Amino acid sequence: MSSSDGVSDQPKPQSPMPQSGPRATYPVEQSQASRRRWFLIGSVAVVVAGLVLAFVGFKQFGDPEVSGQAVGHDVLGSDAVAVQYTVNRKDPSVPVACVVRGRAKDGAEVGRREVLIPAGEVQVAARTTVYTSRPAVIGEVFGCTASVPAYLQPDK
């Protein structure tokens, strides 16, 4: 019961956290439901992060839309190398641009040529001559893309 002087017969509730002593240093353990909730939240976060990582990895390193691979080369002299290569593309109706280059004995790039592969077949074999600034020992395909620059586009 309450009286007019503010004194109550009911005991006062204890403060939730003691200010000193072992209970202040070592808090009361979480309930089973609280631990389960954090475990589920952490598990869902790990699964979502794994899915995002898998998606990004597939987009970055998965099967490319266009790929080019050198299959051979002929050194034509001290200023040229001929490169034979194949280009594979998923959509044969799309033109492709490839960068073919010659490299010297020390690994330096000594010649480069951009080549337009017009729309046509899924797999195309090509041969390109790359003129070099000094003798080349190898010819290779640096890369291919379906994003053909405007200066390689044929006149319409």
Rank of each mutant, 00 (worst) to 15 (best):
Met1Arg: 07
Met1Gly: 15
Ser3Leu: 09
Ser4Phe: 08
Ser4Gly: 06
Asp5Trp: 05
Val7Lys: 12
Ser8Cys: 09
Gln10Ala: 11
Gln10Val: 10
Pro13Val: 10
Ser15Ala: 10
Met17Trp: 10
Pro22Glu: 05
Pro22Ile: 12
Arg23Asp: 11
Ala24Arg: 11
Thr25Val: 08
Thr25Lys: 09
Tyr26Pro: 01
Glu29Val: 10
Glu29Ser: 13
Glu29Asp: 07
Gln30Trp: 04
Gln30Thr: 09
Ser31Met: 08
Gln32Trp: 09
Ser34Ala: 13
Arg37Ile: 03
Phe39Ile: 05
Ile41Gln: 07
Ile41Thr: 09
Ser43Asp: 01
Ser43Asn: 06
Val44Met: 13
Ala45Gly: 09
Val46Gln: 02
Val47Ser: 08
Val48Leu: 12
Ala49Pro: 02
Ala49Phe: 04
Leu53Thr: 13
Ala54Met: 12
Phe55Val: 13
Val56His: 06
Val56Asn: 04
Gly57Thr: 11
Gly57Phe: 02
Gly57Tyr: 05
Gly57Val: 04
Gln60Pro: 00
Gln60Val: 15
Gln60Thr: 15
Phe61Leu: 10
Asp63Tyr: 08
Asp63Thr: 15
Pro64Val: 09
Ser67Ile: 12
Gly68Lys: 09
Gly68Phe: 02
Val71Arg: 14
His73Pro: 02
Val75Phe: 01
Val75Ile: 15
Leu76Ala: 13
Asp79Pro: 01
Asp79Thr: 13
Val81Asp: 01
Val81Trp: 00
Val81His: 00
Ala82Gly: 03
Val83Leu: 06
Val83Pro: 00
Gln84Cys: 03
Tyr85Leu: 14
Tyr85Trp: 14
Thr86Trp: 05
Val87Gly: 07
Val87Leu: 08
Asp91Lys: 10
Pro92Cys: 11
Ser93Thr: 14
Ser93Gln: 06
Val94Ile: 15
Pro95Thr: 12
Pro95His: 08
Val96Thr: 07
Ala97Glu: 11
Cys98Phe: 06
Cys98Thr: 11
Arg101Ala: 14
Arg103Ala: 07
Lys105Ala: 15
Ala108His: 14
Val110Tyr: 01
Val110Glu: 01
Val115Asp: 02
Ile117Cys: 02
Ile117Gln: 02
Pro118Ala: 11
Ala119Asp: 10
Ala119Gln: 07
Gly120Ala: 10
Gly120Met: 03
Gly120Val: 12
Glu121Asp: 12
Val122Ala: 15
Gln123Ser: 15
Val124Pro: 02
Ala126Glu: 13
Thr129Asp: 08
Thr129Trp: 01
Tyr131Trp: 13
Tyr131Lys: 15
Thr132Lys: 00
Thr132Pro: 06
Arg134Lys: 15
Pro135Leu: 06
Pro135Met: 05
Ile138Glu: 09
Gly139Cys: 03
Glu140Met: 12
Glu140Tyr: 05
Val141Gln: 06
Gly143Ala: 09
Cys144His: 04
Ala146Ser: 15
Ala146Gln: 07
Val148Ala: 08
Pro149Trp: 10
Pro149Ala: 10
Ala150Ile: 06
Ala150Pro: 01
Ala150Cys: 02
Ala150Lys: 15
Leu152Ile: 14
Leu152Met: 12
Leu152Trp: 10
Gln153Pro: 00
Pro154Tyr: 03
Pro154Leu: 06
Pro154Ser: 04
Asp155Asn: 05
Lys156Tyr: 04
